[in-house]
């Protein structure tokens, strides 16, 4: 079923993301599942907040609230308009890379040629030059994920909600893409909420790491990442924070 466009729970521009004591429950087959239980989270404009937690901690529910795709049962969500980037690339197989990237512009009513002209330099910047006319099936997993990111970026929203963006990639490509994303966000700052269950990814990319527990989703700990960028995954500060996050998750290691 198609629904109306997302209604961003926006108050005033420049809010960033403010989630205050939010609760959200779902009823499935008679049973009520509490997905989020008093979750608070803040991302100032331009800040990158990573949310890490085990499967079923309500990470995706949190992103849906931030994107205005659903309303909380309790608590408040205030944020600037957000574009979602899904875990799987979900590119449209009948469109070329450039047309996929320009989808948001076409939806907004831009004519095809103007939308392409706008998106093409971005493909170039994202290392996809020469692949403008390639169909998604002709691209590698990492390339498809870059097109998918670009599609969300070109929606022109101040907030990006990234839902485990690299979880479907192999380890080597994922490592490449993490470095790439850090680089892109450096030159193209956005307010970012990125959920992941990759602890290393959370520490490498985030200005702040929010650690969540499994159902019902609660914030266990919030860690500031006060490390200069670019970060290397082997530097002591990163390793120490990884330890801290794993400990907060209750992982023995």
């Amino acid at each position: 079923m198609i629904e109306a466009p997302a209604q961003p729970p926006v108050r005033s521009p420049g809010t960033g993301v403010r989630v205050e004591r939010v609760t959200k429950a779902f009823r499935t087959r008679g049973a009520t599942v509490r997905a989020l239980d008093g979750v608070s989270l803040r991302a100032e404009p331009g800040e990158i907040v990573t949310v890490v937690g085990p499967s079923g901690c309500g990470k995706t529910t949190l992103l849906e609230l931030i994107c205005g795709l659903s309303r909380p049962d309790g608590g408040t969500v205030e944020c600037d308009p957000a574009a979602l980037m899904p875990q799987r690339d979900l590119l449209l197989p009948w469109l070329s890379a450039v047309d996929n990237a320009a989808l948001a512009l076409r939806v907004r009513g831009l004519p095809r040629e103007r939308a392409r002209a706008h998106a093409a330099p971005w493909l170039e910047r994202f290392g996809l030059g020469g692949f403008e006319q390639a169909r998604p099936a002709q691209l590698s997993g990492g390339m498809r994920q870059r097109v998918s990111f670009l599609r969300s970026l070109l929606a022109g929203k101040p907030v990006l909600a990234l839902d485990e963006p690299f979880a479907a990639l192999d380890a080597i490509t994922r490592a490449e893409m993490q470095g790439w994303l850090a680089h892109v966000l450096d030159s193209e700052p956005r307010t970012v909420v990125l959920v992941t269950h990759d602890v290393e990814e959370a520490v490498l990319l985030g200005d702040r790491v929010v650690v969540m527990s499994a159902r019902p989703g609660r914030v266990v700990r919030t860690l500031e990442v006060d490390l200069p960028r670019p970060r290397r995954r082997t530097e002591p500060g990163v390793l120490a924070l990884r330890e801290a996050v794993l400990e907060a998750l209750g992982v023995q290691g």
């Binding site: 198609i2 629904e3 109306a4 574009a83 980037m85 875990q87 799987r88 948001a104 939806v107």
Partner: peptide, 27 residues
């Protein structure tokens, strides 16, 4: 059509008809 794709379209400000025209019909 993947429901995740429909959610994505909503965050790209696509209305019902736009989503139908650009995603569901070709799919």
């Amino acid at each position: 059509v993947d429901p995740e794709l429909l959610r994505l379209m909503r965050t790209l400000d696509a209305g019902r008809l736009e989503t139908f025209r650009r995603v569901e019909l070709p799919a």
